[in-house]
């Protein structure tokens, strides 16, 4: 359960990225955050993942208020999330398998069990045959799938993706969205930020629409 209440985010340069944003996301929901570029989608994603803190208001994830979270508690909060970034943040000096192993090394999983789980995650995104390849050798769609594999290998309860289909052709984007849909169907909360409206009809998720930092006309349950 994620609850945002009257969230504001102002940057020191005087830019207000989010104003008075409130919503609730139930466990297992699939939610799209949409809006034009600059509407505050990325800021909202960063606030949800505790990469930044709100200027005012509260964000509660699994009962913890991110606005007042101790610095030392942030890593443990992040382990609830599978994060997929706009720029993917893959490690280009490591093989596909090693990229997926990183989250498991962080939690200290035994190497054998970790390798088994990493291969299972690669299997889910259709990259099992490329585990020895390096990310540079992958296509854009494959790189995005690798980013998803790394995000889900920890079996997170919440998948949080920022523009996961940007820079992909529509067939590849549809493949990627099918993968998210599959995780949604097995009970994972999926939150996608996207500026691309064509997928919403296709998947029929709940939509939170941001306009100039405000939640506007969304069919979300504004509190």
């Amino acid at each position: 359960m994620i609850i945002a209440n009257a969230v504001c985010k102002r940057y020191s340069e005087g830019l207000t990225a989010l104003r008075d944003v409130s919503f609730a996301i139930e466990d297992g929901e699939m939610v799209f955050i949409t809006g034009h570029s600059g509407a505050g989608k990325t800021t909202l994603v960063r606030l949800l993942a505790a990469i930044e803190r709100p200027t005012s208001g509260s964000i509660i994830v699994n009962g913890q208020n991110l606005a007042s979270l101790r610095r030392g508690a942030i890593p443990y909060l992040r382990r609830n999330f599978g994060l997929i970034f706009q720029d993917q943040k893959l490690l280009f000096d490591r093989s596909v398998l090693d990229n997926v192993l990183l989250p498991l090394a962080i939690i200290g999983l035994a190497p054998k069990e970790a390798a088994r789980r990493a291969r299972a995650a690669l299997d889910k995104v259709g990259l099992q045959a490329r585990e020895k390849a390096f990310p540079i050798a992958l296509s854009g769609g494959e790189q995005q799938r690798l980013a998803i594999a790394r995000a889900v290998v920890n079996r997170p309860a919440i998948l949080l993706a920022d523009e996961p289909t940007a820079n992909l052709d529509s067939d590849t984007a549809a493949d990627i969205l099918d993968i998210f849909q599959a995780f949604h169907q097995v009970g994972v909360t999926v939150i996608l930020a996207t500026h691309d409206p064509q997928w919403m009809k296709h998947l029929g998720p709940r939509v939170l629409r941001l306009e100039h930092g405000r939640l506007s006309g969304a069919d979300g349950d504004a509190l």
């Binding site: 030392g72 443990y76 992040r78 382990r79 990183l102």
Partner: peptide, 9 residues
């Protein structure tokens, strides 16, 4: 990346 996906200091 490690910090973003939950690595402690």
């Amino acid at each position: 990346v490690a910090k973003l996906i939950g690595a402690t200091n």
